[in-house]
């Protein structure tokens, strides 16, 4: 398993360079019954996100909210049983890992959605992870952004997420796959607002696995932020072409 993360020619295990993203494909509006949905393919990771809302709060959520006027945002994340390579994924109720992912997603999106416009209403986000190959959280966040835009929810900006890792020689690698996660160094996941710049408030979520030296923090951060910028470009293109199609189909219908 001890493969070199970066060969002498500067190629990684899957043939990419150190600052190349994997193939990303995304589609909006894949589910007709939902208010908003998106399908995202990031390398071999596949995620479907769907939004239901804004709607009147359901009884359960209203009870939990204890009668306040706040915006209720419910998130449910599910790994499909066939998602992991090899073993069947068991469905665990009240899993702490899933619980944490849900809490993190709630916090990320609450920081960008214009909450004042959605008081006394509820928004449900459902994520289904169909296939995992590293960077699941990233793909989930990106897919959720697309779904929110498809549903027409007002947001400050796109939230894009990306991972970055570090080799033993201190070279930053962008967008880690599952193999690189396991046998590689520490992986940093960031969800950020790429346009607001470096010293401004732009980072919504950070997660780190394993440990690394403090002095390398800068490098790995910059690499991940650069990845977020690139992903933003891809997302933006997908959204605009989708909008273009919608407008065209409306025009041709009329």
């Amino acid at each position: 398993m001890a493969q070199e993360l970066l060969s002498l020619q500067g190629l990684r295990i899957d043939g990419r360079r150190q600052n190349e993203l994997r193939q990303i494909q995304c589609r909006l509006g894949v589910l007709e019954r939902c208010d908003g949905s998106a399908y995202m393919l990031h390398g071999n990771t596949k995620v479907i996100a769907s939004i239901s809302g804004p709607k009147h709060p359901t009884k359960n959520s209203a009870n939990k909210n204890r009668g306040g006027d706040e915006f209720i945002f419910n998130v449910r994340v599910k790994f499909a049983t066939f998602s992991k390579n090899g073993e069947r994924q068991k469905v665990v109720k009240n899993s702490k890992k899933l619980g944490e992912i849900e809490i993190n997603l709630k916090n990320i999106f609450k920081s960008v959605i214009l909450v004042e416009k959605y008081e006394k209403s509820q928004l449900d986000l459902n994520i289904e992870i169909l296939q995992t190959d590293g960077s699941e959280i990233c793909t989930v966040v990106n897919a959720a952004t697309l779904a929110l835009i498809d549903a027409g929810i007002c947001m400050k900006e796109y939230i894009c997420a990306c991972t970055a890792s570090l080799t033993n020689d201190g070279v930053a690698l962008l967008d880690v796959s599952h193999l690189e996660e396991i046998c590689g160094g520490p992986t940093l996941t960031i969800a950020a607002l790429p346009r607001t710049g470096d010293h401004e408030q732009s980072v919504a979520y950070v997660e780190l696995s394993q440990k690394f030296y403090l002095k390398d923090l800068n490098k790995i951060f910059d690499c991940a932020l650069m990845g977020c910028e690139k992903i933003r470009g891809i997302l933006d293109e997908a959204i605009r072409s989708n909008a273009f199609e919608l407008v065209n189909s409306e025009l041709t219908n009329n």
Binding site: N107, S111, V203, L208, K211
Partner: peptide, 27 residues
């Protein structure tokens, strides 16, 4: 973080947006 200046975990709680510069400073 441990005594050898190695970061073992990073976690942001709650609803907020920060800059990477701040994270560096806190570390």
């Amino acid at each position: 973080i441990n005594s050898y200046k190695e970061i073992c975990s990073l976690h942001m709680t709650g609803v907020s947006l920060t800059s990477p510069f701040l994270i560096q400073k806190c570390s």
